[in-house]
């Protein structure tokens, strides 16, 4: 993390679902190349926050700037922002009616207008990278959960984004498949991606994250580097959370 370029900046963001205050006073900044893990109890707003970054969720007030683009500015092309911020979902969301290869190439071909052969070549390289090279012509329903999620990561990588957003990527996986997905995520951490990851996998956080962000009830309660967060939590909420999660 060498430069100080700010990739994501959220200032005083509030979000309401009707009367429910889902995000409160969010001030959140991510620099280029940083790896940030967001954790907290369910319902704390972690997913909502990350989904505001690529405009899957709208927000009520405040400002969000992604890669220099203001999300609320009418001139901003949200589609371009989304190309720069790839997302990996809890439930994979692969397209069931397309082959694995098509799932990975559809973004580059249709959105970035990259020629099909070039996209397919890149797709096969990505499949090698996520360690499922021989499944290109299968359909998602024929793959295991862990394999599907790795395809989902390849699909996001195919768009060559600057930012990768992970929304609880291993929460829907059987325990024996979590490791293979975390391995892929760890290898991404060594490259120059900016990563924001919502997860309960604290081992992963300790190993790879530059910063932990702890949320509860829609607010950011505590932020720190992993070592200090896990060994010396400052707030009571964080202490309680860590005690529950580490037992």
């Amino acid at each position: 993390m060498n430069n100080n370029k700010i990739m994501i900046k959220m200032q005083n963001v509030q979000k309401y679902y009707g009367d429910f205050h889902a995000l409160r006073d969010i001030d959140f900044t991510v620099k280029e190349g940083e790896i940030v893990v967001i954790c907290g109890p369910s319902g704390s707003g972690k997913s909502t926050l990350i989904r505001c970054i690529n405009a899957l969720e709208d927000f009520s007030s405040g400002s969000i700037t992604v890669d220099g683009k203001d999300l609320k500015d009418k001139k901003t092309d949200i589609k371009k922002v989304r190309q720069e911020a790839g997302m990996v979902f809890q439930h994979f969301n692969l397209f069931p009616h397309k082959t694995i290869l098509e799932n990975i190439t559809i973004g580059p071909v249709k959105v970035k207008k990259i020629p099909k052969e070039k996209a397919e070549k890149k797709a096969r390289e990505l499949l090698e990278k996520v360690k499922i090279p021989h499944q290109a012509d299968k359909y998602p329903s024929q793959l295991s959960g862990g394999q599907q999620q790795r395809v989902a990561i390849a699909r996001a990588l195919a768009m060559e984004p600057k930012i990768i957003l992970f929304d609880e990527p291993t929460s829907a996986l059987d325990p024996e498949m979590i490791g293979e997905v975390l391995d892929v995520m760890k290898s991404l951490a060594t490259e120059n991606f900016t990563i924001v990851c919502v997860t309960h996998e604290m081992g992963f956080a300790k190993e790879v994250a530059n910063r932990i962000v702890f949320m509860s009830d829609g607010m950011i309660i505590e932020e720190n580097n992993p070592h200090d967060f896990f060994n010396n939590p400052k707030t009571d909420r964080a202490k309680r959370f860590l005690k529950e999660i580490l037992t």
């Binding site: 690529n54 899957l56 589609k79 790839g86 979902f89 969301n93 973004g107 959105v111 996001a156």
Partner: peptide, 17 residues
Amino acid sequence: PKGQEEAAKSLGMSYIQ
């Protein structure tokens, strides 16, 4: 599932796509 639309959007696809 709503996730299909979200996955497509997150790749930068337009409404029509």
